[in-house]
Amino acid sequence: MKAIVAERLTKIYSGEKKALDNASFELSQGEVFGFLGPNGAGKTTAVKLLNGMISPSEGSCHVFGIDPSSSPEKVHAISGVVTEHAQMYGNLTGQENLVFYGTLFGIPKEESLKRALALLERLDLTVAKDKKLTTYSTGMRQRLSLARAMIHTPKILFLDEPTSGLDPESAQSVNNMIKELASDKGTTVFLCTHQLRYAQEVCSSYGLIDDGTLLAVGSLDALRCRIFSGLKVHIKSNRFPEGISFRKTEGQWAEINVQTEDEIPPIVKRIVDAGGNVYEVMANRLSLEEIYFSLIEKRKEQKEVR
C-alpha cells in the first residue's frame, strides 16, 4: 500500500489565490520525501490537507488508504506531526508533556513513561526532563516536539521545518534519527523544508514546489534528468587549448559539462598535451539547489512566453 497518494490536490483559502494547485504525487512506505520550497509555497497547506486539518477545494488525498478529510482521527492515530504552530504545555515538564501526549494516543501511563524516557535520551534531553517547558531553548523545544511526534511510533511522520532553530550538531543528530527511522523501522517521512542542502542529505525522493505549484517529483537522479544528467567538471589550469568548449569562470578555473566520467581523462590529457599544467579537477553532478533554481527559472520563462 502506498503511504501517501495525492491526486490533483488543490486548496483555495476563501477566495484568495491557490495555496496548492493541482498537486499529484505518491509516496511509498519507508520513503523520506522532501517537500521543498520557499516560505509560503504551500508546504504547510499540504501537511494540513494530508492530516485533515483542512479539506481540499479540489482533488483528493489518502494516507495509508485513509481519506483524511472524512476520518482525520484515523490518520492522526498513525501519524506524528511536527509543525511550528504545534507547541506543548509550558506549565508541564518535558517528561510530563510526553507522558500526557502518550496517554492522549491511548498508550497506558507506564508504557508512555518508558517511551518518553527512551526518546528523551535519544534526543539528548534527559538532563532537562524534569524542567518546565518554559525554560527550554528553541532547539530543545524542537527536539521535544520530535519526541512527542514519535511517542506512539507512527507509521508516517510529517515534519515541517524540523531543524529550524537547531544548532548544527543537533540538526545532524535529528538527520541521523530520521534516516534511522526510515531504514530500520520503515517509517515514512514527509519532510517540508526550504533548506535544500539539508534535504539532499536526508531524503530519498523529492517534490519541488513554488507558489502552490508542484514543479517536479522524483528521486535526485530523476530530477537531474529533467535538467542535465551529466557532470559539471571544474578544472584549474594555466592553459586551456582551443577546440574544447570551456567556460572560463574565475582566475585559472574553467568549467565544462560532460555526460560520463570517462570523458574527463581525455580532456585533462589534451590540456597537458597542449603544454598546460593541471592543478585541480573537480567533477560534480547537479545539486538539488541547482536543479531547484533551474526549474524555477524554466517556470518563469514559460510564464513569460504565455
Binding site: 504545534a86 507547541q87 506543548m88
Partner: peptide, 13 residues
C-alpha cells in the same frame, strides 16, 4: 499558547 493544534493532531475526534 499554540497548543490547540498539537491537541487536534491526536486521534480523538
Amino acid at each position: 499558547k499554540r497548543t490547540l493544534e498539537t491537541l487536534l493532531y491526536c486521534p480523538l475526534s
